[in-house]
Write a protein that binds this DNA or RNA. Structure first.
Length: 462
DNA sequence: TCTGGGGTCCTAGGACCC
DNA sequence: TCTGGGGTCCTAGGACCC
């Protein structure tokens, strides 16, 4: 299936047979030592000639992805679900979509992103689970801690997906594909979850290799066979080509990646802008993006779609307060301050609007953020006849340290209060401390519940 | 396919400045 | 003040990914 020999020859063993099966004390030492020195970004080759174009120094990238992650965790925690169609995302009557489903559920046509009612119609015997983010996060942490033992150059693409660049560590690993296989075995053994692994000279090829490998497989795009590998893949397999772009390309009679090779770069650029340049290069297997390690997040957001559309301003503001509370908790946990606060509203007709504010002094505390969010929300939702199906709040342009302001006397009162609240919540749960608005929200929910009317999906005790 | 939640990146258009 | 051109910042919104 793979020609590991080519790779093995390319990477002459730097030390003796003892390291062949290393998990490697040596690797761990190297990883620790080099973690402080990120790899230099790879300089992009301007070459745009046909598919065989490759960078001067071949890189060794591994893409690894946990199969049906949330569903697999649910099965692991409850073995009686094994072999059954498991659908994670919510209960069948709820407003929501499947975020993951087991391969057994996929046989019925259920897929992630499908709305729960339709999933239920296709698969009434399915086992519907709401899921628990904290549990998935814990599995994800374990997954990444294993990966970090092999190289410092690990990029977390999502909770269940990572890129590893082994190029800098090549002296530790006599065989790249052999190492990638061992990583796969180890993750599976230690987490109990099945993963798919792709190996290639850059991110796009490694990722497409993983797609080929699914489920639970391994695939390497061997040197010199990139063109053959790419030619017959459907355009939809290229990241960045979503439903809208597919429609446009199919009108041009472009169905496969190989068909894209006939389009000039200028044409793709004129249709898709910068995204068109990416399509041009990636369809040829050219990708110089480096593996990016542990950057500060660009944004953090929290939002809720209500079980029933709401128009009552008290309820909406109370819910906004709850979202700000969760948002600022995440900011404090990430040691981030936000320069931009944004509020989002989605009306019953699905039209979505947002309002944002740029802050001179970045913020992190509940009181500050809620005040801004409330103003933005009232600006947005004043006098509308439509009810809302969603509200959300987002913080972006994040920085680590709060710069001092010349014009505001610095007081850490808010920060100390926030830290104290966080501590109590860590010990006794989120619901152990609530703002006035949240208490009101909780009271209204309880009241409505007694009348048999359930208002929302999220729970304040989260 | 009546469409979640949490992200990333890109673009168009207006304001403002020189 | 019937008015050019370019640069930059900001806001709003959309496509896309998992």
């Amino acid at each position: 299936m793979s020609n590991a020999t080519t790779v093995e020859r390319a990477a002459a063993p730097a030390f003796g047979p003892a390291c062949l099966d290393a998990t490697p004390a040596a690797a761990r030492a190297f990883v620790r030592a080099s973690a402080a020195h990120p790899a230099a970004p790879v300089v992009s080759s301007p070459s745009v000639s046909p598919p065989s174009a490759r960078p001067a120094q071949r890189r060794f990238l591994v893409h690894i992805d946990i199969d049906a992650f949330f569903a697999a965790v649910e099965v692991l925690l409850n073995p009686s679900l094994k072999g059954k169609p498991v659908i994670v995302g919510g209960l069948p009557h709820e407003r929501g979509v499947a975020s993951t489903c087991s391969y057994e559920a996929r046989k019925y046509g259920v897929h992630s992103g499908m709305n729960l009612r339709n999933a239920y119609k296709l698969c009434p015997q399915g086992i519907f689970v709401r899921g628990s983010y904290q549990v998935y996060q814990a599995f994800s942490d374990k997954f990444f801690s294993i990966l970090h033992e092999y190289t410092p150059d690990v990029e977390d693409a999502s909770l269940d997906e990572a890129y590893l660049d082994l190029t800098r560590c090549r002296h530790l690993y006599p065989s790249f594909s052999g190492t990638a296989r061992r990583i796969k075995e180890r993750v599976e053994r230690e987490t109990g979850l099945k993963v798919s692994v792709g190996v290639g000279p850059n991110k796009i090829l490694a990722k497409l290799a993983t797609k080929r490998a699914k489920p639970a497989g391994f695939f390497e795009v061997e040197p010199g066979r990139e063109e053959e590998f790419l030619r017959d893949l459907g355009i939809e397999s290229l990241p960045g080509i979503g439903p809208k772009s597919q429609v446009i390309l199919r009108m041009l009679n472009i169905q496969k990646i190989g068909d894209l090779w006939g389009l000039p770069r200028t044409t793709l650029h004129s249709i898709f802008g910068l995204g068109g340049d990416d399509i041009y290069l990636q369809s040829r297997g050219i990708d110089s993006r480096p593996v990016v390690t542990s950057a500060i997040p660009k944004s953090v957001s929290r939002e809720t779609t209500f079980l029933e559309d709401l128009w009552d301003r008290r309820l909406l503001l109370a819910h906004l307060a709850y979202l700000c509370d969760r948002l600022t908790l995440a900011l404090r946990q990430g040691h981030c301050y936000a320069h931009i606060i944004e509020v989002k509203a989605r009306y019953s007709d699905f039209k979505t609007e947002g309002r944002r504010r740029l802050l001179i002094t970045p913020r992190q505390e509940m009181g500050d953020v809620y005040k801004i969010a409330e103003e933005l929300f009232l600006e947005l939702y004043s006098g509308s006849r439509l009810s809302l199906r969603l509200v959300g709040v987002k913080a972006s342009d994040l920085v680590r340290a709060r710069p001092l302001s010349l014009f505001e006397p610095y007081s850490d009162r808010q920060e100390r209060l926030g830290a104290a609240v966080d501590q109590v919540r860590e010990k006794y749960g989120f619901g152990s401390v609530l703002t006035m608005r949240e208490k009101m929200l909780e009271a209204i929910y309880q009241f409505e519940k007694k009348r048999g009317f359930v208002l929302k999906t999220a729970s304040l005790t989260r």
